[in-house]
Every structure is written in structure tokens, then in C-alpha cells.
Design a binder for these strands. Sequence first.
DNA 1: ATATCAATTATCATATATGATACTAAATAT
DNA 2: ATATTTAGTATCATATATGATAATTGATAT
Lengths: 256, 256
Amino acid sequence: MTTTIYHVPALERALDVIDLIASHESDLSFSEILNSLNIPRPSLVRILKILTGRGLITKTGDRGLYRLGMKLIYLGNRLESKLKLKSVALPFMQELALKTGKTIELSTLDRDQLILIDQIEGNEGVRLFSRIGSAYPYFHTLAAGKIYLAHMEKEKRKDVLQKIGLPMVTKYTITDMDQLEAELSIVVKNGYAFEDQELREGVRRVVAPIYDCHGGLAGCIGIASPIFSFELENRKYLGEAVKEVAEKISSGMGAE
Amino acid sequence: MTTTIYHVPALERALDVIDLIASHESDLSFSEILNSLNIPRPSLVRILKILTGRGLITKTGDRGLYRLGMKLIYLGNRLESKLKLKSVALPFMQELALKTGKTIELSTLDRDQLILIDQIEGNEGVRLFSRIGSAYPYFHTLAAGKIYLAHMEKEKRKDVLQKIGLPMVTKYTITDMDQLEAELSIVVKNGYAFEDQELREGVRRVVAPIYDCHGGLAGCIGIASPIFSFELENRKYLGEAVKEVAEKISSGMGAE
DNA sequence: ATATCAATTATCATATATGATACTAAATAT
DNA sequence: ATATTTAGTATCATATATGATAATTGATAT
């Protein structure tokens, strides 16, 4: 095996700049950076311009000093919360799987789609939501989607729903806007959402919201099951169960 | 004014890659990235190699998927805590300045040096610690340095002190190791550190530690004054005052 | 076993990002 | 007022980073 070493000088230099700035507690001037790193003046100017433009570093004032940029806080938090949700939720998902014997799903929002980020398969042996990483745009057909919709401002919700409409996926899908709004009120009231074969015939779900330390919606945890082992009369029992677990996960995330 | 637009394609592409990965909740494969961005295959390979090597992104498994890397958490937290310390401390520094009329200093560790990150000048009109951003390697001559030394493991402390020794800066500087250790015990006992003309003749300081949300030492807040308005009998009063304020700042930082 | 697809490596001509040089402008010091 | 330092702009020849192309390797499916 030949180990080829790749080089992208411009990129490597930019990362050196970031590291240099990060390693100092105080802000750095242009010439401090210039003298610390072996980068020719015009190249450094270009790199700093790009990094500043993209928010990775910030300049204080017009002829000011350079420091790390807010974008890094954004990126760092983004990763941290992603990792945190999965790791915090896992033991609770296992607990719930053991208690109910059903499929437990952890989902979250990826841009404008719902995405399954973790799953423990139940002993029914039925794969219900397809695989981890799969995404769904049909919020109105999914319990997790209802949770997200219920958390939006009414305006925003309208926008989102107008884009894709309320297409009928199964004969149980809610296709009427007013009916959906009524359903969402129930979601808010209960603190969990229910899905009765609206995405796929023969499958029911109950799902509850997980909050992060900023009070935002971090994701959803849910129980999924074929209808033959998820009678309608279990709905409330299972709903309260996910809700309770979701609250535990939320506090594990640092909520409240 | 001519507005020249600079370009560093390699860097801009790398940042596009990071943005793309950040914008997705799930991890991305090589070809997903390739298809989403207009980057030729070999170039993308090189960029991913560098980004991975520097920890900005991580590959899950050998032929795995790409996600954001831990380095971003480090960078984000680094900036966040820097900003936080200053912003949280400021109102308390003002309070202390008003109460005492003296110079208030906020300092922290920058690599292996003490650095002054913020300052409110007192009404004595004497500039005591030089300017914001200035750094000092002589921990044993500064109250803030004593705080940091007192928080180190004894081993680590020995290493640090051996590097620069205990040079005499003024005739009051502590140059004996045993005497310094005794002084540090007092610092621990009191919860604040005192500096009596050990860095500069005619200047006294009292300084207390600020902790962050992880229980780590985030920085120090201190009162500095010329000796003529800082009698030795004020030592305890001022010491308790900074300590109290430091505790408030710590809880503002999320400590405990 | 075979085929297919995805990820990565290898090569090298050339388009182009870079850097030597010089200049301007603003701030700070003397 | 004058000199000095620092930040940033402008130009352009050329060293070199890049990308078209293709081979290789490992997974996954059939």
C-alpha cells in the first residue's frame, strides 16, 4: 500500500490560521498572523477575506483584529446536539423497548424533512419505518411530523404545508386542513402524537417531543407497531409511556 | 473604492463541504457530497482528506460516511467561553469599580501565559497592568498567577515553575519555592490571592477565581491599586469583595 | 461465482492560483 | 509636522494545484 500524501495548500493554510487564532486568548492582528505562519502576504489577505466572509473568523472594527467567528459556535453546537440526542436517548430507548417489546424510533428534523436517526427493532420482526437515515417529507402522515407541525407558528406551518400539500398516502391519511389543525390541537393537549395507518396501512405510532437545553425541539421519540399488537385502547397507555420517557430524555439534554 | 473580489477556490469548496455536512442531520456519503457540490472528484478527495486529517470532519468507519468533526466542538466552545467570560463579567466588574473606585482586571490563561482580557480603570489614574491583551509569564509575581498555580496538580505546577524558575522581578518577589507553596496554601484557604508589589513596586492586587460550567478555572477577576490607597488592613475586606463578585460571575457562567 | 456499484488511488498536461514586488492609505509615534 | 509602522491593494509571470481520465479495490447484490 502506497500512502499518498495529499496537499491542498490554501486549505491547510486557512486551517492553520484558524488554529492560530483559536490558540490565543486575545485577538490577533494581521501582522501577528503573518509573522506566525509562513504565508505570503497576498495569500494571507485572500484567506482572511474568505474566512471572514464565511463567518469562521471575525474582524473587530475596520482595521481591527481577528478572532474566531460565530459560525464556529453554530457548527460546534450543531454537532454537539446531534451527538447528544443520540447518546442521551439510547438508554431510554432500550428501556422503552424492553418495557413494550415494540419498535422504538428516534427522529429529528433534517432541513425540511423528517429523518430517522436511531431505531431499536421490536420483537414483532416487522420493519416499519425503513432504515436509519431515511427521510420523509409528508409531515401530515407521521406522528413525528405532527409534533413538528404542532410546534410551528401557524404562519410557518401554512407555508410548509402549502409546499407539499396534504397528499393522500393511505386511505387513512388526513387530507383536510381543518381536520389536521384539530388533530394538532389534540397533540398539544396530550403532549404526544398519534398516527393511525396514515403513512402505511397496518402501522400505528405514538410519538412525544424531546427538547434541548434552549427549549427548542431537539427531536422525537416514538413507539411503532403493527395494528394487531397495538389496539386502539392501548393508545393512551403507550402515549403516556413515550411522553414520560421523552421528558426524561429532555432533562438529560439539559432542558428546563 | 474598488471592490476586488478575492477567490481561494480550494478553501471556498472546503467550506461548502462543511456547510453541506452541517446542513444535513444524517451523515453523508462521498458521492452524495460529490453530487451536491460542483467539485471534481479528485479535488473532493483531497479536500476531504485534509478536513478529516485536521478533525473538522470525521469519517464513520473505513469506507464510511462523513459527519462534522470534534474539532468544531472544540473551536465553538473555545469561542463561546471566551465571549461568555467577558460578557458575563462586565456588569460585575462595573459594580466592583463603582464600589471600590479601583482598577478592576479580568484575566485568563492563554496557552502558558496570563493575559489581561478586560479592564476598567479606576479613578487613581494610574495604569497598573499595562494594556488589554498583554501577557505575563511570571505566575509567581501575580495574584492571578498564584490562583492558577494553586489550581494545578503539584506535579504540573513543578513543571511549569521549573521552566521559568522564580526570577526576582522586584525586591518583594517570592523567589523561594517553599515560601511560594506556603503562599499558595493561603490562597486556597482564603479563596482569593494577594499580591504585594511582587510584580511592580507600589502596586497591590487581590484576585479571585472564576469557574465555568464544567468546574474548570475560566479566569480571574481582581482589584488593583497603588499602595497609597490600598493599605494592608484593607486586604481582607477587598479580598472578600472580589471573592463574592467572582462567585456571582461563576454562577453566571453556569458553574456549580 | 459474477456483476454492479461506490470509494479511492494514480497519472500528468495545463489552466490558474499563487507570490514577488511595489504601491497606497491610514494610524500611531516622535 | 514628520517619520514609522501596519493593513491592505494592484499587477503579472510562473510554479503548481487542479481536473480529465482511467485503473483498482472493496462491498453488495444477483
